[in-house]
């Protein structure tokens, strides 16, 4: 265990990937990727791994710097990026607050103030109950007519999921917001709430150790690594909710630059390194979209968050 392993140097094998379509844009400066949440969070981790994969594959001569600009529930970082119109060396990562903070009127910029690069993956949620819970299936929940679920925040995907299930299962749902996934899991294991919608990588170990039981997955297909767990759709309920991960740039960036960076992201996320270091490790589902398709996906999500927040009475 005494040898120093420096990850970046380890892979000199990936030269075959380094051929790019001939485009007019030639990068001359390093790229900054702004992450609006703090280091160590899901967005930050995905971004840093993508940056290191691009570096490892030597897809472009320039380097990527990941910068955490937190504060104002995302509005600080997002308005910084949106303000730098035309800058071809600035990306930012799409997160939930990308949509929700502007909807609350708390940000000078909204998701329409950016140029889409590419979506890279979606993170599904796994609905779990404590191992000693009487709930064995969705039918048990329907029968009891009520469900107490935890969420990582009131304007967050697990809350949205609970809201959707309330309608689909025709049950009453009480949503308890906690300060993070860890607190939700602790409350679930302690029997203080009944249901959690957890990140696959975090609940997988708990499932295998027999601490929690999985009921269903929130993606449109089965989650890699959770092949026995049915989706809500398979169980007959039209509920799909995943967290979108992707990157955008400021407005008015030259088209060839947008095309150049989009191609780089697409190559990186198609590589075995990305699969091994991100998709497999975090049980994420690849979901690659670019340009107009990505824009349409963002429109759809914005619509959903608007609806949720209206239902919850946060916005009118």
């Amino acid at each position: 265990m005494s040898t120093l392993k420096i990850m970046g140097v380890a892979a000199g094998l990936a030269l075959g990937f380094a051929t790019l379509p001939a485009l007019a844009f030639e990068p001359e400066r390093d790229v900054t990727i702004v992450v609006t949440s703090s280091a160590g969070g899901g967005s930050d981790t995905a971004t840093r791994i993508l940056a290191s994969v691009i570096d490892e594959l030597e897809l472009t001569p320039v380097n990527f710097l990941v910068e955490n600009r937190t504060g104002g529930s995302g509005s600080v970082g997002y308005s910084f990026v949106a303000g730098r119109t035309g800058d071809p060396y600035l990306w930012t990562k799409v997160g939930v607050s990308f949509f929700t903070t502007p909807l609350m009127g708390e940000s000078p910029v909204s998701y329409t103030d950016f140029t889409p690069l590419a979506a890279i993956s979606v993170d599904p949620y796994i609905m779990v109950v404590a191992a000693n819970s009487p709930i064995q299936s969705l039918d048990d929940i329907i029968e009891s007519g009520r469900m107490i679920s935890g969420t990582t925040g009131i304007v967050a995907d697990p809350a949205l999921l609970a809201q959707k299930l309330q309608e689909e299962l025709e049950i009453e749902v009480d949503i308890v917001p906690f300060g993070g996934d860890g607190e939700v899991t602790a409350a679930l294991l302690g029997g203080h709430i009944e249901v959690q919608f957890g990140n696959p990588s975090e609940v997988l170990e708990l499932i295998e150790a027999g601490e929690v039981r999985a009921i269903a997955a929130s993606s449109d297909r089965r989650v890699p690594g959770f092949d026995d767990i049915p989706t809500f759709v398979e169980l007959g309920y039209d509920v799909v909710q995943t967290q979108l991960r992707g990157f955008v740039m400021p407005r008015d960036v030259p088209e060839d630059a947008v095309g150049y960076w989009t191609a780089i992201i697409e190559q990186a996320v198609a590589s075995p390194q990305w699969k091994e270091q991100y998709l497999d490790r975090f049980n994420a589902i690849p979901y690659v979209l670019s340009g107009a398709e990505f824009q349409a996906e963002m429109d759809r999500r914005n619509e959903e968050y608007t609806e949720l927040m209206t239902t919850l009475g946060i916005i009118e």
């Binding site: 703090s38 280091a39 160590g40 993070g180 860890g182 899991t185 602790a186 294991l189 170990e205 708990l206």
Partner: peptide
């Protein structure tokens, strides 16, 4: 349990 009890532990 794999449960981070604070922001620092979430980073760890």
């Amino acid at each position: 349990l794999g449960i981070p009890g604070s922001a620092t532990m979430a980073v760890m």
